[in-house]
């Protein structure tokens, strides 16, 4: 099957691997139904096969293979992690620092109504209800997520490109950065009552990073609405940066001239740089970033530069010393 997801490997112009993704899924579906038909035909009395004009209706109970394990993989051929893995191992300190505990604690999280305020240095500031955002072209992307704690997953997201949203609000020429803010609501987020963090969570991107076609605002995964523990109703996904850059439960997007403050950078500027690009060559004072454990695998694997997205994003950083701007 040569039909691997090409979206990430194709340079900026046309990254639409979704078509490839869908055609592959359709192909699998067809294969599934065809093989079911063959099976049924084989069971049927002689002479009533497909060729004889008998219609074979799809039988309930035959699984549609698009949810089968191994059905989805990233462009490097690595299978996506299981839904249970993705939804039961979450760094979401607003709920708890216990990765396994987030799923349960986030069960009652209110994601509706929800609106996102997009403003700052833009010509058309606007507050979007989360439903409004569905009119941006929805994409399916299978991305690697590399946590700064040296574990990683492959996750099939759906969502829209942040660039589409930015285009609509028209950034002013003075805008250089995009700042993101998570909901602040200690009533819903028990972790926000603690004294050790400058809540709410904030993150930021340079404008060109924000416009990059890999930068996604995710509203779902595995074809389902985004689970609360993964940052519902909408979160950022920047696959070439460490996971903490991909801020969850966004309520505010602001275009700024100054580089915005970001939570982890505020706590430990020597460890969590503004860029925080996945980089096995830049030594992190706390953990080694040379290798990682893919969730579900026993052995560590080497960490790839820009998390394997060098071809697409390296040009954003030409001329920069990434050991200084880490």
């Amino acid at each position: 099957m040569d039909n691997k997801l090409k979206h990430v490997a194709v340079p900026s112009s046309e990254i639409t691997s979704e078509s490839a993704y869908f055609s592959r899924r359709d192909w699998l579906k067809t294969m599934g139904i065809a093989s079911a038909a063959t099976l049924l035909a084989a069971c049927a009395p002689r002479g009533t096969g497909i060729g004889s004009g008998t219609t074979v209706s799809p039988t309930p109970g035959i699984p549609i293979p698009d949810s089968a394990p191994g059905g989805v993989s990233d462009e490097l051929g690595d299978p996506a992690n299981r839904f249970e893995e993705i939804t039961n191992y979450n760094n979401y300190y607003e709920f708890t620092t216990d990765k396994e505990g987030v799923a349960r604690l986030s069960e009652g999280f209110q994601t509706s109504p929800w609106s996102v305020e997009v403003g700052g240095l833009v010509h058309n500031p606007k507050t979007y209800a989360v439903e409004d955002l569905l009119r941006f072209e929805q994409k399916e992307r299978v991305y690697r997520l590399r946590c700064v704690e040296a574990w990683s997953m492959v996750i099939p997201w759906q969502g829209f490109e942040l660039g589409d949203l930015l285009q609509e609000v028209e950034p002013m020429s003075s805008a250089e950065y995009v700042a993101f803010t998570t909901l602040y609501d200690p009533g819903q987020y028990p972790g926000q009552s603690g004294p050790f963090y400058p809540w709410p969570y904030t993150e930021g991107l340079r404008l060109d990073e924000a416009y990059h076609r890999l930068t996604l605002v995710a509203t779902g995964l595995y074809g389902q609405p985004l689970p609360n523990q993964n940052g519902a109703p909408l979160r950022l996904v920047v696959p070439w940066k460490y996971g903490f850059k991909s801020i969850k439960a966004i309520v505010k997007i602001e275009l700024t001239e100054q580089r915005p403050e970001t939570l982890w950078n505020t706590i430990a500027p020597g460890e969590y740089g503004f860029y925080s690009n996945v980089n096995p060559g830049v030594d992190h004072p706390r953990w080694s970033q040379a290798s990682e454990r893919r969730i579900g695998e026993l052995n560590r694997r080497a960490t790839l530069m820009f998390n394997g997205y060098s071809e697409e994003v390296a040009s954003l950083y030409t001329g920069m010393d990434l050991s200084v701007d880490y």
Binding site: Y93, T97, V148, E149, G194, P195, F196, Y197, P198, W264, I267, A268, R286
Partner: peptide
């Protein structure tokens, strides 16, 4: 303390 994401000296992060 060093194995956790935080800073014991500035009392910030995951240091409880």
């Amino acid at each position: 303390a060093w194995a956790k994401k935080g800073n014991l000296l500035t009392l910030s992060g995951d240091i409880l």
